Simulated scan of single mutants.
Amino acid sequence: MTILDDGARSGRGHGAPSMADVARLAGVSPQTVSRVANNRANVEGATRERVLNAMRALGYQPNIAARALATGRFGTIGLISFSLGSHGNMRTLDGVATAAREAGFSINLAGITTPTSQEVHRAFARLGTQAVDGIVIVEAEVLDTPSLLLPPGIPVVVADGHGGHDHPRVDSDQADGARLATEHLLGLGHRTVWHIAGPPDSHSAKHRHAAWRGTLERAGRPVPQVLFGDWTAASGHRLGGYLAARPDVTAVFAANDQMALGALHALHEAGRRVPHDVSLAGFDDMPESAHFWPPLTSVHQDFTRVGRVCVDILVEQLRTRTPAPAVLHPVPVELKIRASTGPPQAL
Rank of each mutant, 00 (worst) to 15 (best):
Leu150Ala: 13
Ile112Gln: 09
Asp133Tyr: 01
Arg101Phe: 02
Leu84Tyr: 06
Pro146Ile: 06
Ala65Trp: 07
Ile154Asn: 03
Arg91Pro: 02
Ala66Trp: 06
Arg67Phe: 04
Phe124Asn: 12
Ala66Ile: 07
Leu149Phe: 11
Arg91Leu: 07
Asp173Tyr: 09
Thr129Phe: 02
Asp94Val: 15
Glu139Asp: 15
Ala97Lys: 01
His87Cys: 06
Gly163Trp: 03
Gly72Val: 08
Thr113Val: 10
Asp144His: 14
Gly104Leu: 08
Ala54Leu: 00
Gly164Leu: 07
Leu143Glu: 10
Asp94His: 12
Val132Cys: 00
Ala57Lys: 15
Gln174Asp: 15
Ser117Leu: 05
Ala54Asn: 05
Thr145Glu: 12
Val43Tyr: 08
Asn63Tyr: 01
His167Lys: 05
Thr92Asn: 10
Ser106Glu: 01
Gln118Met: 12
Pro152Trp: 00
Ala99Val: 09
Ile154Glu: 05
Ala175Tyr: 10
Ile107Ala: 09
Gly161Met: 07
Phe105Glu: 02
Asp160Tyr: 04
Val156Trp: 10
Pro152Gly: 04
Pro155His: 04
Gly75Pro: 10
His165Cys: 14
Ser106Thr: 15
Ala97Pro: 07
Gly153Ser: 07
Arg122Ile: 13
Ala65Val: 13
Ser106Val: 08
Tyr60Glu: 02
Ser81Arg: 09
Thr145Ser: 15
Val96Asp: 01
Ala123Val: 10
Glu102Met: 00
Gly95Arg: 11
Leu149His: 15
Pro168His: 05
Ala123Arg: 07
Val136His: 03
Leu84Val: 14
Asp176Val: 08
Ala125Pro: 10
Ala110His: 04
Val142Gln: 13
Ala159Ile: 07
Asn108Cys: 07
Tyr60His: 03
Ser117Arg: 15
Arg73Gly: 03
Ile80Lys: 03
Arg56Val: 02
Gln130Asp: 09
Asn53Tyr: 04
Glu49Met: 06
Ser106Cys: 06
Pro62Phe: 05
His87Leu: 00
Pro152Lys: 11
Gly45Phe: 04
Val156Lys: 11
Asp94Phe: 09
Pro168Ile: 12
Gly177Ile: 03
Ser117Met: 12
Ile112Glu: 08
Val120Phe: 09
Leu58Asp: 10
